[in-house]
Structure formats: C-alpha cells, structure tokens
Nucleic acid binder design. Structure first.
Lengths: 82, 82
DNA sequence: TTTCATTTGTTCGTATGTATT
DNA sequence: CAATACATACGAACAAATGAA
C-alpha cells in the first residue's frame, strides 16, 4: 500500500512533518507570498490527499516556527518578514 | 442528548478543558500521586465517556502545564514536585 | 529469539458549532 | 441567507516502541 497521496512512497518521516516542510518551502521560495492567506485547511487536505487533521498538524508546526499566523474564522497567513 | 458523559449538562467550556482541569484536580488532591502512571489514554476515554482525541488534548494541556510527562509506549506520569 | 499485550503516536473519516464575509 | 474557515468532538484503524513471557 502506498499511503497518503502526498507521500505515496512512504518516505521516512511523518506526513504532517513532510507537509510542514513542503509548506515551509513554498513560503521560502515565495510561492506563498508574505501576508497572503494560505488555501483553506480543507482545500489543502483535498489538494494533497491528506486528512484535515494532518493539514492542521502541519500548519500548527508552521505557526510554532513563526512562519504563519492563524486568525480564527479568517484563515492562516504567511508571516511578513523583513 | 445532553453531550458527553463527562459533561452531560454542557456546562460552559470545552470538554477537553474541563477534563484537563479535572485531571489537574486529581493531581492536586494527591489522588493521582507524584511519579505514578495515569491510566492509559484509551482507558481514560472509556472511563469518562469521551473520545480518545479529547483525552489526548487534555493530557497535552497537562503536559504544557508541566503536571505530567509522557513516555511513548510507557505511559503518562505525574511529574514529581517538591 | 520470537511472540504477545499494552500504551502512545499517527492518520483517516465525519459531524457539529461558531464566527466572518 | 449562503459560503468560507477555524475549533471541537466523535469513531476507527494501523504503526511504533516497550517489556514481559
């Protein structure tokens, strides 16, 4: 069995960590711009073929790293850095 | 229906917070002694009539408060205090 | 060494509540 | 009112680590 769509080869590491690193890369590369809102959790879950809770765990990590902030009922935003 | 068995009256506050406070009370009162292992997460979920995720959320809070430590495949233990 | 039970860790699915737009 | 989005909560299943038999 191949696992989640985001990690069909079951590479080492937990899906939420790999996903957090992937998201961090999108921020680092500028594909996710500073101050922009991320796609919704359900949209991300759909896009990456993982569960809502997994996306949430990944964005929790981004928040801990200070890469994003989450505003209730608004969304998760890339933290502006200077 | 009235809600989870642990909070059938749906008192204000989330189940996981009420549960965390309840657990903290057990530690404070000494009913859960220092250095002792808590019942397993799944046993607690069964006992209080709540979901596993809710117990886990509650024990996460206890951990953040420094009241317990969790060792994988061993259990969650009341932090010894002096 | 292998097997087994226990416990935590992770992931999925689904539903409901609440707030914002 | 409807759509969007986060928060909470339920259930279920499998993985990983530990320790004992």
């Amino acid at each position: 069995m191949s696992g989640p769509k985001f990690n069909p080869d079951n590479k080492p590491g937990y899906t939420y960590e790999l996903l957090a690193d992937h998201f961090a890369g999108l921020i680092e590369s500028g594909e996710w711009e500073a101050n922009s809102r991320l796609p919704g959790e359900r949209a991300l879950a759909e896009e990456y073929g993982v569960a809502l809770g997994t996306v949430r765990h990944a964005t929790d990590i981004l928040r801990e790293r200070g890469l994003v902030i989450t505003l209730k009922s608004k969304g998760t935003f890339v933290t502006k850095r200077n």
